[in-house]
Amino acid sequence: MDSQVMTIAQVQLPVDEVLKIQKHRLMPSGVSVDELEKSGKRISVVTGIHGDELEGQYVCYELSRRIGEHPEALCGIVDIYPAMNPFGIDNITRGIPAFDLDMNRIFPGNHHGDMNEHIAAEIIKDMEGTNLCLDIHASNIFLTEVPQIRINELHKDILVPIAMKSNVDLIWVHGASTVLESTFAYSLNNRGIHTLVVEMGVGMRITEDYGNQLVDGIFALMADMGIWKGDVPKVRMPVVSNDETGNDVYYLNAPFSGIFFKERSHGSMVQAGERIGCVVNPLTGELLSEITAPGDGWLFTIREYPVVEEGSLMGRILKKSALEGMGH
């Protein structure tokens, strides 16, 4: 097996530093890249576009480690990109710190644009030839999510059947939005490079169980693509929400600014009227609001960060009707 760390984009910084975007390429020896790409055997695992989302770090390491245990089983290219936004990771910052810019709003980039647009364009260029890409996110620092794949309705016919094999708990098909056209995943899917957006866990933390679950799914996808001929764990059947109209999910937004105490974990089944948590005012000792489920369903998102302002998202519940439609 060949294993190589490669720099896919770099720019000089003002004071004695070069910003590099790197990937780790694993592939069988003695076979050409062209040949493997043409036979559909290149997968790219990307993370760190948001610098404070670290769940993908475990996935990158574990994927590489497991392949290293059985290099003879590798039949295709695995490209691992652990840090698309190295500044953000170093600064515990979602965006690109010096620019206060969300990197996931500048794709497909521009080779003639500024530093960040240039890097984005180089990243997209490096993705050419990829047959499947996973873009791993960790929600944000505020919310914990069950492992899920989010798919733009424009790409659902192609992506849902692929996502079904990825061992996640939920596939959430959402409506199209013009703003999302600047994302990494949209830019790749628009170019015919199938890309799945994974959301799982919470920002600034690593949930090892979720990492292992997704790595199992990546091996299942690799086996399906002919990239892996080793053992593959059995994958679970996800819930699929075709939520293009936005009617499948209850959103729990804070009615008051305060401190949120969560009382139910994400992944719980909840019933209408059941208490999910509460918002309190520690200054006055008041209970400002009890947060209850507006209907029966599956609590797949819960707020992790206690401080809320009026409107802050505290949870999402997939309606029971949507679950029943899937036979769950």
């Binding site: 720019v11 910084l13 500024d114 530093m115």
Partner: peptide
């Protein structure tokens, strides 16, 4: 006072 590479 400082400028990055490729900056307009």
């Amino acid at each position: 006072s400082m400028a990055y590479q490729n900056t307009a």
